[in-house]
């Protein structure tokens, strides 16, 4: 089966603000990333702020062009942002935002906003649109009374459900969720995650689930890709990542996820400065914080190698690391 979305060696470089007398600086937000997501599958992209995970989401949706490499949606290249084909394609691929209040027009009712993609893409007759709004609102768990309200009259969880309903109204095949639950209360997070799972079961939508929080994706991801300063450092099926992380960075992330009944004694605490994409360390970008770095890590960038269990790791020391863990 061919994937819904596929990225091949994608990079995205931002030109920083140069002044009249200052040279422009370049920030490589995403570098040489390859991934693919199939129908009904959820890929979680994990990383700290500045890891390029949100930029990757934008590039996958064609909201920001890739500086190098290509993105293929259903085996076809993406049209340039703003073009007619690009606009028409929006019905099939959707984005869920971190802050639902900002993503909703404060002046329109929830029903009007959920209807909007149907209006834009002229899907169905007016009656069918109204019917679809009711249907999708029920699917995401909104009550009929919510439909006539405005965004500020809803709770945070209800707003996010409205955003999800709007995204699902046109029956997209790809959903990119950029930190969809980090603005919500912890008690609401699980409910919204369950909503995503139910929607995926019902519609078979492919999902890219971007988060800084590994424990959030535990119950939804089929596969997990960990990003550090623009590069994927490890990618593997979710259960494999959680059971046996290999990259030192992933190890640190996984060890920080609390497991009920288990003390956090052997937690790996990351040292050093948090990553800054404008000042990327040479060699393996993670080496200044890596507990096991050797001389080679300072000079050469490790390739993302595939090995067993559908796993890819980018570390010079994977064999050694593995040995140490065993």
């Amino acid at each position: 089966m061919s994937p819904i979305i596929e990225a091949n060696n994608v990079s995205r470089t931002y030109a920083g603000h140069g002044g009249l007398f200052r040279p422009k600086s370049y920030v490589r937000a995403v570098e040489d990333v390859s991934l693919s997501v199939e129908q009904g599958e959820t890929l979680a992209v994990i990383g700290e702020s500045g890891s390029g995970k949100s930029t990757l989401g934008q590039v996958l949706l064609g909201l920001a062009p890739a500086s190098a490499g290509d993105v293929r949606f259903r085996d076809a290249a993406l049209s340039p942002a703003g073009s007619r084909q690009w606009r028409e394609q929006r019905a099939e691929m959707q984005l869920i935002y971190q802050d639902p209040l900002a993503a909703l027009d404060p002046r329109l009712t929830i029903a009007e906003q959920i209807r909007e993609p149907l209006d834009i893409h002229q899907i169905g007759t007016p009656e069918e649109r109204a019917q679809r709004v009711d249907e999708v609102a029920r699917d995401v768990g909104l009550q009929p009374v919510h439909l006539s309200r405005r965004p500020h009259e809803l709770s945070g969880g209800q707003r996010q459900r409205a955003v999800i309903a709007r995204a699902m109204a046109s029956k997209p095949v790809l959903l990119v969720c950029d930190e969809p639950v980090s603005a919500l209360d912890v008690s609401i997070q699980a409910q919204v995650i369950n909503t995503f799972r139910r929607l995926q079961r019902m519609s078979g939508v492919a999902m890219v689930f971007i988060s800084h929080d590994l424990k959030v994706v535990r119950n939804i991801a089929h596969r997990v890709a960990v990003m550090y300063l623009g590069r994927i450092v490890e990618e593997a099926p979710a259960d494999v990542i959680f059971a046996n992380p290999q990259h030192p960075y992933t190890k640190a992330l996984v060890s920080s996820v609390p497991i009920p009944g288990k003390p956090l004694g052997d937690r790996v605490i990351l040292q050093g400065e948090p990553p800054n994409p404008a000042a990327r360390p040479s060699g393996c970008a993670f080496h200044p914080r890596c507990p096991v770095a050797v001389a080679q890590c300072r000079t050469s960038v490790p390739e993302l190698h595939s090995n067993a269990e559908h796993r890819r790791v980018a570390c010079h020391l994977v064999a050694e690391v593995r040995g140490a863990a065993a």
């Binding site: 949706l61 909201l63 959707q94 993503a103 834009i120 893409h121």
Partner: peptide, 14 residues
């Protein structure tokens, strides 16, 4: 980052 960007992302014309 707001609603207008969201609606553009839905495919609305400028």
């Amino acid at each position: 980052k707001g609603y207008a960007g969201a609606v553009m992302q839905l495919g609305a014309s400028p």
